[in-house]
């Protein structure tokens, strides 16, 4: 495949660029002679670059999975209530056990995300299969309702600042060494999905075909649900939800190379990393030395890409 080398070079180029851009001047050529430069690189630039790449890759893979689970292309982990669920879990832990360690918060966020995503799957089961657009609408409604619950509780308990960092502005300026490593869990979960890629691809053909081929659809659904929830929860916990990646990247890759997930998931992951890195870089450069959140750049770019997709492919769900 020629795509993988091209994407890999793009990723490496963007990562190198990401290492050099920032308010503090760092010259990669003399990091070994300059202690301060080394410190900035290892404590801030490198963690941030890795965090951005992991987030983009994991969210894109989660997008593919949720789209296979519901057999609909117009959903992503940010539009089906998963992110809001994670925020709800975090909020609950923050209120009930304010001193709880990170791993407790991580588990609470993942479990709550699973519950709300499962709720979404339950809701759409009852929708008529032919109405393709009802599924994304149901997702938007559900995430809207959950989002208001989160906002209400956040408001009442004076935790709106937290809620804002989880759901409103996905951005990476706060990432330093020691505060992003959860994203490796997200990447691990996404990587796990690759081993079941065939199963997800078969599930995408519909429950009937999947059963005919002897696939236990319920267990594949559970695995997908777990991966999507864990990925989203980790992203929400560490950097806040990044919109559109999980929706747009799977669609773009599917257009070009189809839904043979075993072949396409690595491309999806790389493309997601490239897209979010590019957006983060743009966000760091437009009002240099200040920043615009990567999530905002993605919101603009992702919306444009999505409209283009809708325009290009009207009939196929």
């Amino acid at each position: 495949m020629r795509r993988m080398p091209a994407l890999l070079s793009a990723l490496i180029a963007l990562m190198l660029a990401s290492l050099t851009v920032g308010a503090a001047h760092v010259d990669l050529r003399d990091i070994f002679s300059d202690d301060r430069a080394m410190l900035v690189l290892l404590e801030s630039r490198l963690p941030r670059t890795v965090a951005v790449a992991l987030t983009g890759a994991a969210l894109s893979v989660a997008g593919v999975l949720i789209q296979a689970l519901v057999r609909n292309r117009f959903v992503g982990p940010d539009t089906v209530g998963t992110a809001e669920g994670a925020a709800l879990g975090l909020l609950g832990v923050t209120i009930l056990f304010p001193a709880s360690p990170l791993w407790v918060r991580m588990i609470a966020a993942s479990l709550a995300a699973m519950v709300t995503t499962w709720l979404f799957l339950g809701v759409i089961r009852r929708l008529p299969a032919r109405e393709v657009m009802l599924i994304p609408i149901a997702g938007l409604v559900l995430s809207g309702v959950l989002g208001s619950v989160v906002t209400f509780i956040g408001w009442q308990t004076d935790l709106m600042q937290y809620v804002g960092t989880w759901l409103l502005s996905g951005e990476f300026s706060g990432v330093i060494a020691g505060r992003y490593e959860l994203l490796w869990v997200a990447a691990g979960a996404a990587g796990l999905a690759w081993f079941a890629a065939d199963r997800f691809a078969i599930l995408g053909l519909g429950e009937q075909v999947a059963t005919g081929l002897g696939l236990s659809t319920a267990s594949v659904m559970r695995l997908g649900l777990a991966v999507v929830s864990v990925v989203t929860a980790m992203v929400v916990t560490t950097v806040g939800m990044i919109p559109f990646v999980g929706l747009v990247v799977p669609n773009l890759v599917s257009r070009v190379m189809g839904d043979n997930l075993r072949a396409s998931l690595p491309v999806v992951a790389l493309s997601g990393a490239v897209l979010v890195l590019a957006c983060d870089l743009v966000g760091r450069l437009v009002i240099y030395p200040y920043e615009v959140p990567a999530g905002m750049i993605l919101g603009i770019l992702g919306a444009a890409l999505f409209l283009w997709l809708l325009h290009r492919r009207p009939a196929h769900g």
Binding site: R71, N72, R73, A129, R130, D198, A201, I202, G204, L205, G206, Q208, L213, G214, L215, S254, R255, G258, D259, N260, H316, G317
Partner: peptide
Amino acid sequence: TAVASRLRLCELVAFGRWP
């Protein structure tokens, strides 16, 4: 029923061997 999946025909047929 309507298929939302974008598989190549050869990939679809190959899934017949998956069991």
